[in-house]
Design a protein around this nucleic acid. Structure first.
Lengths: 372, 372
DNA sequence: ACCGTCGCGGAAATCGATTGCCGTGAATCA
DNA sequence: TGATTCACGGCAATCGATTTCCGCGACGGT
């Protein structure tokens, strides 16, 4: 059955050769397909001669098992699907890198997709991965509410864990960071430097991070009046940071500090400040969020909030594996602590001079780390 | 056969519900599985009443076809595997983004993997994707020679196209850019500014881009002596750029221009220069390669070589689709032209002042574009 | 009235691998 | 010696969807 070659015609070598199936191996080794399967999987003991014959045939034919057939029968693809909003924000590649590495050690392959911050594309990807029978899903939903229907649909069929961002209106497993705490710490830091007129440039409130950080900013201002001119929201991009900073810094009453929704925005702000001839941190202090690798290289280097990426991905992966083995468990939410990294964009004493490879030193405030 | 529920026990709703198969739909609709398949695929005409019954059952059961079964039978997964060396170099995310978008329009899903610049991991990923029966592979091999065995093994079974980087020793379809031409243009540009003592800071020669660009730099120097102190090779990272620049610029005879192997290196160089109190471009000019989005925001903005990413991905995807439909065709190599983007890091007259959103203007030299 | 044709539906084979079940022969034990 | 266990191998069912082949009834043409 299902013999593959030997139909009389010469091989006619054209690039791609037909794949040998387990039956071809069985025939070449003079055993049954069951035996081949058992040799390869080690599921049951096999006579050494048979095993040797099988291995020889595998080698000879260059046999590689078809994971489609295996997955169909086993009801497990040993693959995890992952969906992140963007890959041009360095934070997510970093998350992806760690996740892939960790899951590989657990014997899973990672299938990565991008939603491009579009709930429609995200839903397509979610459906695609579901139909391809991944064993689990990791997702940073691109929108708090508009992502919900597709996330719900997927979670009904497949173990799903959210990381870094979450949807609202239903609770699924979620590993995030203390976004609000990070912002609060930053504000405290700014005020300790004598900065009281603090502006906020953030992403839109559609996604979790944007909403959390903005809300935290407003809350941290408690006493002060929330001047609408001081709070600008649009997108998590350098371009927006630049544009917003231009608006803020050319106004008659510019703020003396700018807290940004993430590092990309902050880099845009630094760019605009430099262009306008303003000195950072003397004229205005600036902070970011995420601690991407560019942050330490910026001019000046960027004060920011570091998310514990490795911990984040490990916890999310563990949560997913737990839900795979035990689908009925209660949804659980983990919030990891963040850490403020103080650099030159807020602290002149840490401006970018001195040896390039100096280490940092804690300055006594819990959760605040002074670098370089 | 394969009835799914109705075994007497109550539903016992725990998170995940069992997936309905095409047979469940058939039973609910009172037709055969063949008919369900035909309704869903539109392969053959079906009586309207049957079709309606099927659609109702699909809706009712929330049926989603299992792509594993479909792919097994159809011998096509409608998925393309892609492997890039890193995702923390913004150039590749950009390539990925465009590729995914284009392939989606052609009805393919993209499964993305990262090799982390490690030929061993790359080989694993290649095998994994091959065993999962992707219809084609797109790869930027992380190493010119060490990637060859795994690439060969994969290409023997599945249509494969290389993009941006290639292996050596065997020719497979490849879409790249004129790396050498870009470097030559940069050198010409530097010399036209009166800079003759040009240093090169690049990635290692293990991968295609590193080797091409380094070789081109040496070749462009023809007359001049290739001072080994002036050519530093290690990795395509900001960190390396910073370290190398520190070495170059603190030497007794610093160069008056630094050509970098990519933008990340160049950003590191700018960072080191600023820290050492050197002015760019007055004291030293700096150029990058790739035109990542940070390049325009750097202080000063970065002169660089733009790769035609969209064209690159479109051509690579088209080549792959062509090879899928016609596996026997001759391997083909495409080399796309690059374009130098002149910005503030080489040209003081284009320093970063003026309106933020100004467009650029061509300065008459072919292939050279003066931005902002 | 008879014979093709057409529309439509279903049974069954198929894709590739896994696994429950049974059979066979050898070894062990009473 | 006869019974029981054990090691090992193969048959066939199975996962879920597609597709070939065939059958049935209706319809049109002569």
């Amino acid at each position: 059955m299902t013999a593959v070659s030997g139909d009389g015609t010469p091989p006619e070598d054209l690039g791609i050769t037909v794949q040998a199936s387990i039956y071809d191996v069985a025939k070449a080794a003079g055993v049954s397909a069951s035996t081949v399967s058992r040799v390869l999987s080690g599921a049951r003991s096999v006579r050494p001669e048979s095993a040797a014959a099988v291995m020889a045939a595998v080698e000879e034919l260059g046999y590689r098992p078809n994971q489609l057939g295996r997955a169909l029968r086993r009801r497990s693809t040993q693959a995890i699907g992952m969906i992140v909003p963007r890959v041009d924000n360095p934070f997510f590649p970093s998350v992806v890198q760690h996740t892939e590495e960790y899951l590989r050690l657990q014997g899973y392959a990672l299938l990565l997709c991008t939603s491009n911050d579009d709930p429609g594309i995200e839903a397509q990807r979610l459906d695609m991965l579901t139909e391809r029978q991944v064993d689990g899903l990791l997702i940073s939903p691109c929108h708090q509410t508009r992502s919900l229907p597709a996330v719900r649909r997927a979670a009904e069929r497949i173990p799903l864990v959210q990381l870094d961002r979450s949807v609202e209106g239903e609770t699924y497993d979620f590993v995030g960071v203390d976004d609000a705490g990070g912002i609060r710490q930053l504000i405290t830091h700014m005020r300790s430097l004598g900065r009281w007129d603090i502006a906020y440039v953030g992403g839109d409130r559609g996604n979790w991070s944007g909403a959390q950080r903005h809300t935290a900013f407003l809350a941290a201002l408690d006493g002060s009046e929330p001047d609408p001119e001081r709070v600008l929201l649009a997108s998590f991009s350098e371009r927006w940071g630049r544009e917003a900073a231009e608006r803020l810094l050319t106004s008659p009453t510019p703020p003396d500090a700018i807290v940004c929704g993430n590092d990309l925005i902050a880099l845009g702000v630094l760019s605009a400040a430099a262009r306008l001839g303003l000195r950072v941190p003397q004229d205005v202090t600036v902070s970011g969020y995420d601690d991407i690798s560019m942050a330490v290289l910026a001019q000046p280097s960027l004060t920011t909030v570091r998310q514990p990426v490795e911990e984040l991905t490990r916890q999310a992966a563990d949560l997913l594996l737990a839900r795979i083995t035990e689908p009925g468990r209660e949804p659980c939410t983990l919030t990891l602590p963040t850490q403020v990294i103080v650099r030159g964009s807020t602290c002149p004493t840490h401006a970018d001079e001195g040896p390039l490879h100096a280490g940092g030193a804690a300055d006594g405030v819990p959760g605040v780390h002074v670098a370089r």
